[in-house]
Amino acid sequence: MGRLSNRAAELSERLTQNVQAVCRHYLPSGRREGRYWMVGDVAGAPGRSLYVRLFETGRGAIGNWVDAATGEHGDLVDLIRLNQRHVRLAETINEAERFLSLPPSAADGTSTSTTFAKPAPAGSTSAAKRLFSASKPLTGSLAASYLRSRGINRAFDLPALRFHPRCYYRANEDDAPGTPGAFPAMIAAVSDDDGVQTGTHRTWLDPTGAKKANVASPRRAMGNILGNAVRLGQADDILIAGEGIETMLSLREVLPTMPMAAATSSAHLAAILFPPSLKRLYVARDRDAAGDAAFGILTNRAKAAGIELVSLMPDFADFNDDLRQHGALGLGEQVRLQLHEQDRTRFSAQ
C-alpha cells in the first residue's frame, strides 16, 4: 500500500501540470471561470457546486478541489477515482497513467509541442486591488441605477462597492460570437475579517443600467476569495452571511446597522471564515439545492466552533426577490420575525 500511495502522489504532481486537460477530459460539462474549473459534481454533471483550483495561491494548491454540495474534497487523483467509480487505488493509478500517456493535443486540443507549465502563483490579488483602485465611487453611476432597479437604495455610502465604466470581460464558449470585450461593471472589494482586501468581485452591467450584461458569466471574482467575503460592516458577535451581493444589500435595506457578508457563491458561503468573536451567525438562504447544501456544511462547521446558526428564509427565490415583491416594509416585517428578540431591538432600522 505504501508503494501505491507513493505512486499516487507522483501522479498527482504530474496531473497538476496538466490540470486543465484533466478537467476537460473528466469533467467536460464544466467550464473555466477565472481561476477555477466549475462543474456540478465529481461525475461531471452540469452545475457550479464543485470547483477545481487551476492556479496555486496561498489559499490552496493547484489541482485541489471542493464540492460545496457534499463537502468532498481532494486532489486530482481523488477526482479521477470518484469520477471513474474505482474501488481500488490501483485502478485509479492505471487510469491516471493511461491519461498521462496521451499527447496533450488529445486531451486539451493544444499542440503536441506545447507543455503545460505550472502556473506561477498568480498576482491576481494585486490585480484585484488595482482594478478596485481604478474604479469610481458608486454614487451617480450606472451601478447605482442598476441597484435602484432592484429596489436597493442604501448601498451608495459603502466603501466596499465601486463602479468601473469599462471593465474587461473575457468571453467563453457559451458567449455569443462578437460579445464585446468590456462592459460597465459594479466592482466589490472582497476582504478578510480584518478588512484587508484579498480579491475583487465584478458584476457586468447592461449599458442601460437596468439589468446585468447579456453574457454567459455576468459575475466573476478574482484574487483570494475562499473564506473571505464582501463585507458590509464590521462583524463582532453577530453576522448575517449569504451568497449574492444584491441579496445582502436587500437585507441591509431593512437592517442597516447589522454587519453582513456576501460570500459571492454557495461554495464560498459554505467555506466562509468565522470572525473569532462570533457568537451567532444568521444565514440568508437562497431557495435552491446549492443553498441547502451550503447551509448543511455551515451547520456542521458552526456546531464545531460553538456558534449558534440561524436560518433566514425568503418567501421567493432570494431576499432581493422578496424586496421587490413585498417592498422594504414587508421585507422588514418578514425578516425581523426570524431574528432573536434581542437582535430585533439592537439592529432596528434607522
Results as ranks from 00 to 15, higher is better:
A69I: 06
P259I: 08
V254S: 01
F55C: 09
A171Q: 09
K129E: 13
L147S: 05
R88V: 11
A171H: 07
L298T: 09
W65K: 03
S101A: 15
L158R: 06
E341D: 14
L281D: 06
D75M: 04
G71Y: 02
A43F: 02
Q342K: 13
T110S: 10
E246W: 02
S101F: 00
G47T: 02
G242V: 06
G306A: 11
E246R: 02
N300R: 15
G332D: 13
V335W: 01
N320T: 11
Q20W: 02
S12R: 10
P275E: 07
Y36I: 07
L323Q: 05
D175H: 01
M258H: 01
S29N: 15
F316L: 14
D288G: 02
S124Q: 08
G30L: 03
S101E: 09
L269K: 00
G195M: 08
L142F: 06
Q197E: 14
F274A: 14
W37P: 00
T70E: 09
N18H: 08
P184L: 12
A271L: 14
I245H: 00
D322H: 05
Q234E: 12
L15G: 06
Q325F: 05
S124I: 11
G44F: 04
G2N: 09
L329K: 12
T264F: 00
E243T: 12
V77T: 13
G40M: 06
C167G: 02
A143V: 10
G40D: 04
L15D: 04
S266R: 01
G74R: 03
H268C: 10
S266N: 08
S265C: 07
R162Q: 14
P207E: 04
S5A: 14
E91S: 15
F316I: 06
P159M: 12
T70Q: 05
A263C: 15
P259S: 11
A155Q: 02
T92V: 12
L339P: 00
N320M: 08
V196H: 07
E253V: 12
L337N: 07
R324A: 09
V335H: 00
A185T: 05
T257S: 15
R35G: 07
V87R: 09
A317G: 09
T70Y: 04
K303A: 15
A262I: 05
R98S: 15
P119W: 03
A235M: 04
L309C: 09
E173G: 14
R285K: 12
A8G: 06
L232S: 01
P28D: 08
R85E: 13
V215S: 06
R344I: 12
P256L: 01
T299F: 03
D206V: 09
E308G: 11
G63N: 03
A185M: 08
P276H: 03
Q334C: 10
A134T: 10
V230K: 04
Q17R: 14
D41H: 00
A284K: 00
A171D: 04
